[in-house]
C-alpha cells in the first residue's frame, strides 16, 4: 500500500501537553467562568479569542499552508459560523483555537493567553471546548455519566463537585435521564448531546463545533442546533459553528467564509448570502429561500435578496407581489 495519509487526522506537530502545575489554582475560579468577563480580572477585553496573523502548515517542506495568515477576533457571547468547502482550512482553524494545533507563525490568544504557552494548555482547553464530527469517536467511557465526568475528573475536581457538574451538564442538554445508558445504544443526536455535556462539564466559556452536525439526520441536527442556540442565549457561551449546512449558518450572528486557508469574507448572514459571487466562488451554496430570491433577481425582478430564512423570504415576496398587484 502506498503511504497512508489520514487527511487532517494526523497531527504532525502538536502541542506537547506537559503536566500542568497550575491545575489546582485554576479550578478555584472556574465556578464563575460562565459569568463571563468576571472570571479573570485582567481579561475584561470583549474578545474571548484573538487570532493574529496565524499560519499553519501540515507539512512545512512542501505544499501550501492549511491556514494562511488569518486574523480574526471572536467576541464574548458571539455565535460565529465558519463556512468553507472541504479542505478550505476551517477544521484546521478550529483545532488552532484550543491549542490542539499550535500556529507556525502568528498567535492565538484565548482570554489573553497564547496557545503557544504550554503551561496554559489545560487552562485554554478548559476555556475553549470542542465538539467533533463523529459522535462515536469522542465518547470515551461505556456509560453516559462516566463519560461526561471525564473532563472534571481530569481537572481534579472532588467526586462531589464532579457529580454536580455532570448533573447540571446532562440536564442542560436534556440527557439526564440517559445517564446510566451505554453510549452505543443512543441515536446520533443523543450521542452528540452527550459529547456537548462532556464539554459543558468543564464549564467552558466557548465551544467550537467542528462539523458536529455533518453525520446526523435532520432530527439529530435539530437537537444539536437547538442545544447550541440555547447555550449561546441562556448560558452566554460563545459558539463557533463549523458547518456545511447553509441553513445552520444562517442562524448565526456572524459568518466567516474560508477559502484556501484564508478568510475571504466575514459578516452577518444577510451580508454573506446576498453576495452571490462570493458564495459560488468559494464553493458554497445558498439556503433555499435565498436561492429563490437570487434566481428571481437574475430573471430581472428587482427584489431584496438578503432574506436567509423561510419566514423572511415569504415576507419579502408577499410585499413584492402585493405591490405589483396594487400597481
Amino acid at each position: 500500500m502506498a503511504t497512508l495519509q489520514f487527511g487532517k487526522g494526523i497531527i504532525l506537530k502538536k502541542s506537547n501537553n506537559t503536566i500542568n502545575n497550575s491545575n489546582n489554582n485554576c479550578n478555584n475560579n472556574c465556578n464563575n467562568c460562565n459569568n463571563n468577563g468576571k472570571s479573570t480580572k485582567e481579561n475584561n477585553s470583549q474578545n474571548i479569542i484573538e487570532i493574529k496573523n496565524v499560519s499553519f502548515y501540515y507539512n512545512e517542506t512542501e505544499g501550501l499552508p492549511a491556514v494562511d495568515n488569518v486574523s480574526l477576533n471572536i467576541k464574548r457571547g458571539e455565535f460565529l459560523a465558519v463556512l468553507g468547502h472541504n479542505g478550505s482550512g476551517k477544521s484546521t482553524l478550529a483545532k488552532l483555537l484550543n491549542g490542539l494545533l499550535v500556529p507556525d507563525s502568528g498567535e492565538v490568544l484565548v482570554n489573553g493567553l497564547s496557545t503557544k504557552d504550554e503551561s496554559q494548555s489545560i487552562n485554554i482547553k478548559k476555556t475553549v471546548g470542542m465538539v467533533f464530527q463523529n459522535p462515536d469517536n469522542q465518547i470515551i467511557a461505556s456509560i453516559v455519566e462516566e463519560d461526561v465526568a471525564f473532563g472534571p475528573e481530569n481537572l481534579g475536581f472532588t467526586p462531589k463537585e464532579s457529580r454536580e457538574r455532570v448533573e447540571s451538564a446532562l440536564k442542560a442538554v436534556n440527557m439526564w435521564e440517559f445517564r446510566n445508558k451505554a453510549p452505543h445504544k443512543l441515536s446520533g443526536g443523543q450521542k452528540q448531546r452527550v459529547a456537548i455535556a462532556g464539554v459543558l462539564a468543564m464549564q467552558p466559556e466557548c465551544i467550537v463545533f467542528d462539523e458536529s452536525t455533518a453525520m446526523l439526520d435532520p432530527k439529530g441536527r435539530k437537537e444539536v442546533m437547538d442545544t447550541l442556540l440555547n447555550l449561546n442565549k441562556n448560558n452566554n457561551i460563545t459558539i463557533i459553528l463549523i458547518t456545511h449546512f447553509m441553513e445552520e449558518a444562517a442562524r448565526a450572528k456572524k459568518i466567516a467564509v474560508m477559502n484556501n486557508g484564508k478568510i475571504s469574507a466575514a459578516g452577518t448572514p444577510k451580508n454573506i448570502f446576498s453576495d452571490y459571487k462570493l458564495i459560488t466562488d468559494t464553493g458554497l451554496a445558498l439556503p433555499q429561500p435565498t436561492e429563490l430570491l437570487h434566481t428571481l433577481k437574475e430573471k430581472g425582478i428587482n427584489v431584496d435578496v438578503s432574506a436567509v430564512n423561510t419566514t423572511d423570504c415569504i415576507e419579502v415576496l408577499s410585499k413584492l407581489l402585493l405591490k405589483e398587484k396594487e400597481a
Partner: peptide, 17 residues
C-alpha cells in the same frame, strides 16, 4: 415539504399566486 414549497404554500394562502 421542501423549503421552497413552504414559501409557495404561504404565498398561495395569501392569494398572491
Amino acid at each position: 415539504v421542501p423549503e421552497v414549497t413552504k414559501i409557495m404554500i404561504a404565498l398561495k394562502e395569501k392569494g398572491l399566486i
